[in-house]
Amino acid sequence: MLDIYGELFKSRLLLGTAQYSSPATLRQAVEASSAEIVTVSLRRESARMRAGQGFWELIEDLGVRVLPNTAGCRTAKEAVATAEMARELFGTPWIKLEVIANDDTLQPELFGLVEAATALVAEGFKVLPYTTEDLSAAEKLAAAGCNVLMPWASPIGSARGLINRDGLKSLRAYFPETTLIVDAGIGAPSQAAEAMELGYDAVLLNTAVAKAGDPVKMAQAFASAIEAGRLGFEAGLIEPRDMASPSTPVAGTPFFKIDRVS
């Protein structure tokens, strides 16, 4: 089971709610994904459009847990104020903490991230920081009280998969007890399965499903891939090797002659 601050979940897929072609597609994709947790954000509400009110009704109706984010925040101060607004709005102490350094890479600003995480933990938040695979940042976040870490696979929305597989592997090895969720950059079910095979506890993604030709089918594909990857990890993968090793028994091979063995 996926452990988020002591709460257990069967699904290891966390799904974003943005970029779907319609509210109906969003609903169907969430249902097909079997996700029990979806990410949401907060944005300026227009007195005329009141877009947020309808969106909230849809989310409430889905009956899933929400994980609000601080997407777009550039400083620790902005992220803290956004998290505080999110806690009141969504009624949850969970926060997907994002402090963004750069518009091109949308990479985490790690110094601001640690500063904001420290402040929010002190305020009673349960912080899920969007971070990189950097071990020193992870250590500081864990020391600040983050029981969950969410390293990127590659830049948000890039669909490039695990660009630093070794780094993610190290992070898993250094933090065997921490809940680790690969967040961002996943484009294909196979990439999600790869993260799960490394022993990651869950995968958080949005664009790969929302922008797929058939988002509902893709949500199912990710659900299956994540389950398969997790089973593979639990089963224990064999180590890769350079040379071939026959799977069929050699003993008793017909026409076998010892002088042909190289």
């Binding site: 974003g16 709610t17 943005a18 970029q19 779907y20 969003l26 990410t39 949401v40 954000s41 907060l42 944005r43 300026r44 509400e45 009141r50 877009a51 947020g52 009110q53 969106f55 909230w56 989310i59 609000p68 984010n69 997407a71 607004m85 709005l89 969504f90 948000i156 929305g157 949005n206 664009t207």
Partner: peptide, 9 residues
């Protein structure tokens, strides 16, 4: 600032 729930990733 007056904010409301919105789609997010």
């Amino acid at each position: 600032e007056i904010v409301a729930p919105r789609q997010g990733g």
